[in-house]
Computed example of a mutant assay.
Amino acid sequence: MSDMFYDRDSRARGCLTLSSKTSPLAQKRWSTSKTPEDPKNQVPAEPKSATKRLLSKIPIGRSHENIYTIPNILTFSRLVAAPVVGYLLVHDYHAAALSLFAYAGITDLVDGWIARKYHLQTVVGTIIDPMADKLLMTIGVACLAVNGSLPVWLAVIILGRDVGLAISAIYYRWISLPPPKTMARYWDFSLPSAEVKPTEISKINTALQLMLVGSAIALPVVPEAIISAWHLSEAMTGFQYLVATTTIWSGLSYVFSNNAVKILTKDEIQKRIAQAEAKRKP
């Protein structure tokens, strides 16, 4: 029995002696090796921060709205139709120009009805919708003045008002744009910043201008006998003076009105986008 303990003790001492004679590299490897059973060698997992867990549950606010709606698409089609109408007028294709002008007028009514019925109103729609009307009006008036269908003085009044409103829109868009103010963000109409509300006289004036341009386009298509019988030429002259009066009146209404242009705050932008998304959900 004592021999057994002696041999076991000798073997243990022999192992210790052998290990002491190993190379320094082996000793370094042996000392740095980590066994999974040793709790001192285990690296504790980093606890997840409570602040990070809380922040991960907070929804990030969105400053963009969905602009790819049917009303906005119809409005954009009117923007594209405007220069085509001008081309047709310059080349005396009055029948084709009248058809495309009628399409623009119908879509102007339809897109507004769809937006209200299906809750697809967008801030960008309040900008590009009057923009499409004014572009069609501007091109139509300019081309009709070149053809002699409208007097030059009336064209100057209509176009001068539109130029003044366009400069004002550029100014208000820039001052209301949230920082950073870059040209890319300026032309990103999915980023709402200001809302334009047309005045009542402006709405009436827009309708009268559209009727005037439509009548001037259609007049060459109407037979001469009907024009003479119904005194349409004299009626057009009186209508031109009426439109000149409402045009000047509507331009002044934007200058003296306090509710025509509203700069949206960050909270208002978030609230409107959230309301639009909630209405679109089934």
Rank of each mutant, 00 (worst) to 15 (best):
Ile106Ser: 14
Thr107Met: 04
Thr107Asp: 04
Thr107Gly: 07
Thr107Pro: 04
Thr107His: 04
Thr107Ser: 13
Thr107Arg: 03
Asp108Ile: 12
Asp108Leu: 09
Asp108Trp: 00
Asp108Asn: 12
Asp108Arg: 11
Leu109Met: 12
Leu109Phe: 08
Leu109Ser: 13
Leu109Cys: 10
Leu109Thr: 11
Leu109Asn: 10
Leu109Lys: 09
Val110Asn: 03
Val110Ser: 03
Asp111Lys: 02
Asp111Trp: 00
Asp111Ala: 07
Gly112Phe: 00
Gly112Thr: 02
Gly112Ile: 01
Gly112Cys: 01
Gly112Leu: 00
Gly112Ala: 04
Trp113Arg: 14
Trp113Glu: 13
Trp113Ala: 15
Trp113Tyr: 11
Ile114Val: 13
Ile114Asp: 09
Ile114Gly: 12
Ile114His: 02
Ile114Arg: 00
Ile114Pro: 03
Ile114Thr: 03
Ala115Asn: 03
Ala115Tyr: 00
Ala115Phe: 00
Ala115Met: 00
Ala115Arg: 02
Arg116Glu: 02
Arg116Asn: 07
Arg116Cys: 06
Arg116Met: 05
Lys117Arg: 15
Lys117Ser: 14
Tyr118Cys: 11
Tyr118His: 14
Tyr118Lys: 13
Tyr118Val: 10
Tyr118Leu: 13
Tyr118Pro: 13
His119Asn: 15
His119Ile: 08
His119Glu: 13
His119Asp: 14
His119Gln: 14
His119Met: 11
Leu120Pro: 07
Leu120Val: 06
Leu120Tyr: 04
Leu120Ser: 11
Leu120Trp: 05
Gln121Met: 11
Gln121Glu: 07
Gln121Cys: 10
Gln121Lys: 12
Gln121Tyr: 05
Gln121Ile: 10
Gln121Trp: 03
Gln121Phe: 02
Gln121Pro: 05
Gln121Ala: 12
Thr122Gly: 09
Thr122Ile: 06
Thr122Leu: 02
Thr122Asp: 04
Thr122Asn: 08
Val123Ala: 11
Val123Asp: 13
Val123Asn: 15
Val123Ser: 15
Val123Lys: 11
Val124Tyr: 10
Val124Asp: 01
Val124Asn: 09
Val124Phe: 13
Val124Ala: 14
Gly125Lys: 06
Gly125Phe: 01
Gly125Tyr: 01
Gly125Val: 08
Gly125His: 02
Thr126Phe: 01
Thr126Lys: 13
Thr126Ala: 12
Thr126Tyr: 08
Thr126Val: 03
Ile127Asp: 04
Ile127Tyr: 00
Ile128Glu: 01
Ile128His: 03
Ile128Thr: 11
Ile128Met: 10
Ile128Trp: 00
Ile128Ser: 07
Asp129Lys: 07
Asp129Leu: 01
Asp129Gln: 04
Asp129Met: 07
Asp129Glu: 02
Asp129Ser: 08
Pro130Leu: 04
Pro130His: 05
Pro130Met: 02
Pro130Glu: 01
Pro130Gly: 08
Met131Phe: 12
Met131Ala: 15
Met131Ser: 15
Met131Tyr: 04
Ala132Ser: 14
Asp133Lys: 12
Asp133Tyr: 05
Asp133Arg: 11
Asp133His: 12
Asp133Phe: 09
Lys134Ser: 10
Lys134Leu: 08
Lys134Met: 08
Lys134Ile: 07
Leu135His: 06
Leu135Ile: 15
Leu135Gly: 08
Leu135Ala: 14
Leu135Met: 14
Leu135Pro: 08
Leu136Glu: 11
Leu136Gly: 15
Leu136Met: 15
Leu136Lys: 12
Met137Cys: 10
Met137Asn: 10
Met137Phe: 02
Met137Pro: 03
